[in-house]
Design a protein around this nucleic acid. Sequence first.
DNA 1: TTTCGTGTTGTCTTATATGATAACCAGACT
DNA 2: AGTCTGGTTATCATATAAGACAACACGAAA
Lengths: 72, 72
Amino acid sequence: MDKREILILIGSRIREIRELKGISQQDLAAGCNFEKSNMSRIEAGRSNITIGTLVKICDVLNVKLSEITNNM
Amino acid sequence: MDKREILILIGSRIREIRELKGISQQDLAAGCNFEKSNMSRIEAGRSNITIGTLVKICDVLNVKLSEITNNM
DNA sequence: TTTCGTGTTGTCTTATATGATAACCAGACT
DNA sequence: AGTCTGGTTATCATATAAGACAACACGAAA
């Protein structure tokens, strides 16, 4: 799996969990201290995010990093 | 677990796997197309690496991303 | 229709990761 | 002594992620 695929998978996983918890992109982004526009890009896999950003998102979603990267 | 801890854990995991496979930082870095100095920082958890960089390293080490992030 | 909620996209600045180079340290070996 | 090998650290330029902002699309509900 290459970088592009992984980023898309990570984004999809984030979106899946977010929707499962009934949170809007807006609110998730706000919890992470950034704009919904950036969250939209992240969920679309269009941003090569850092571990720091991913950890922030995991924190707000209240999931472990390994839950996001599971099977990758 | 916060960002700092996670980065240190990821770095340690990379080093562990690299040494297990008997590769030098030099060679791992070369396989990733960057310098040993950067690999040193990454293994020390002193660089907030992107998913792209992590995927590159996983590729050269021939491990899955989830093997690195396991239990985090 | 208008308004609201949610998400997307483009563009901008600033912060920082990437990547290169050089100097350095510690062991091992000659 | 010198000379490898492996790793660390400092500094630099460049690429790009982070973060903010505005405009837009679309469906639902008023």
